[in-house]
Computed example of a mutant assay.
Amino acid sequence: MFPLTIRRAAASDAERLTSLVRGSGAYRGAYAAMVCGYRVTADYVARHRVFVAVDTAGRLLGFYSLVLEPPELDLAFVADEAQGSGVGRLLVEHMLGQAGEAGLTEVRVVSHPPAERFYRRLGAERVGTVAPSPPKVAWERPELRFTLA
């Protein structure tokens, strides 16, 4: 486990978030089109609950974005070098805490297919699939839901 802090993202983090998304090993090969040209903007960071996980040197280990209306985990990424270290689990737990504080009773997740097992291990249930939306997304994606107590 990396020593880390989870803090609210600032507009100045937008470029680093974009780099993390575009450089993600999970989106190479067949999934590359989905993040090609994708940008996390300062406006996006200002409009949504975006939180970053950073290590003691300020290095970005991951981030998530919680959209409140309708409730959805819109983005969740962990740096390739931090995969498997618990950063993703901590970010999802933090997101669920934020959702609860906002009065949400559930949070939708349209998952990257290889990430479905991760979300299910953390308590999400599969509720359906989302159809492809070419040209960027040419495959079905699992639709999951976290239900808050």
Rank of each mutant, 00 (worst) to 15 (best):
V130E: 15
L73W: 00
L20I: 04
R8P: 02
E81G: 03
A33M: 09
A57R: 13
V127W: 01
A42W: 03
E93T: 12
S133F: 10
T5K: 00
A82W: 08
Y31C: 05
P113V: 01
A11H: 06
E72F: 07
F118Y: 12
V107K: 13
A10Q: 12
L66N: 01
L122D: 04
Y64R: 13
R7M: 00
V127M: 04
A82M: 03
Q83F: 06
S12G: 08
V87G: 09
R59E: 14
D55Y: 13
V137M: 09
G97S: 14
A124G: 11
L66G: 00
A149V: 06
L91W: 06
E106L: 00
L122V: 02
L17R: 08
G58R: 10
V110F: 12
A42M: 00
Y31E: 06
Y44S: 14
A14I: 05
P70D: 03
D43S: 14
G103N: 04
G62H: 10
L66I: 01
A10G: 04
A32P: 07
L104T: 02
R47T: 12
D74M: 10
R121M: 08
V45D: 03
R117T: 14
P132T: 15
F2T: 14
P132F: 15
R145G: 04
S111A: 15
G123A: 09
D13M: 06
A79W: 00
A33D: 15
E15G: 04
V78Y: 11
D55K: 13
F2P: 15
V110Q: 13
E106W: 03
A82D: 01
F63V: 13
T18Q: 06
R108M: 15
M34W: 10
Y38P: 05
E125Q: 11
G88L: 08
L20W: 02
T129P: 00
V130I: 09
L68Y: 07
T5Q: 02
S85R: 00
L148S: 02
A14W: 06
F118D: 07
R8S: 10
M95P: 11
E101G: 03
R89E: 15
L68S: 11
V78A: 09
R121K: 14
